[in-house]
């Protein structure tokens, strides 16, 4: 499972990271080293082992259906990059 330049570019595109061609190559070289470490996983047989998603073997604790929050949009929007008429502004979305 070796990494290709296209893999790097595709991941960058999915992750919304802008990476130039020269940089992609450098990143590929570095990531290849990391994936060599990761490839060690292949050496062990894990058939029948249940994947472990959480550190504790617990079930969900649920909240009661009660409104506990009040309006804080002025505080929240005081740290927003662009706001108008109580809305967060972004460049036009074309659907």
């Amino acid at each position: 499972m070796s990494l290709s330049l296209d893999d790097v570019k595709r991941a960058a595109s999915l992750a919304r990271l802008e990476i130039g061609d020269a940089e992609s190559q450098r990143i590929l070289d570095q990531l290849s080293g990391v994936f060599e470490l990761i490839a060690k996983m292949e050496s062990v047989d894990t058939d029948g082992i249940e994947p472990m998603a959480h550190a504790q073997d617990m079930m969900a604790r649920l909240r009661q259906d009660v409104v506990t929050e009040s309006d804080k949009h002025e505080l929240f929007q005081s740290i927003a990059p662009a706001v108008d008429a109580d809305l967060y502004l972004v460049p036009k979305v074309i659907e």
């Binding site: 990761i38 996983m41 292949e42 062990v44 894990t46 082992i49 249940e50 994947p51 472990m52």
Partner: peptide, 12 residues
Amino acid sequence: AYYLKAQRIRRL
């Protein structure tokens, strides 16, 4: 190949 495998190893 990666994520599930890693989680299985995590259990080991």
